[in-house]
């Protein structure tokens, strides 16, 4: 019992549910030339892995749900099969 931390509280940390990027079968890829910066992908990404500033994607945790590609009004996001991605 003495080895327990004094304050046994969980801390907010990325990847609390594990390396969820490994769940992905397809990865979203953004074409910066088509992106209008409307930020809809940023607000709708369930995991918040799309950065507000530059729409870069954190593939460590992107689960590949495909919502961003489906909702992008400029069709700037494509879902590419992981195996085909170099």
């Amino acid at each position: 019992m003495n080895n327990l931390p004094i304050n046994p509280l969980s801390c907010a940390t990325e990847g609390a549910g594990g390396p969820t990027g490994t769940w992905r079968s397809h990865r979203p890829v953004i074409d910066p030339a088509k992106c209008t910066g409307c930020l809809l992908c940023w607000i709708w990404c369930p995991e918040g892995v799309i950065a507000k500033e530059d729409r870069s994607i954190n593939y460590d945790y992107c689960k590949g749900c495909g919502l961003c590609a489906k909702e992008c009004p400029a069709h700037a996001i494509t879902m590419i099969k992981e195996a085909d991605h170099e």
């Binding site: 990847g15 369930p46 689960k63």
Partner: peptide, 12 residues
């Protein structure tokens, strides 16, 4: 919400 939750892909 920190990225990498235990929720399903596309979870509301």
């Amino acid at each position: 919400v920190k990225a990498g939750t235990g929720g399903c892909a596309g979870c509301p």
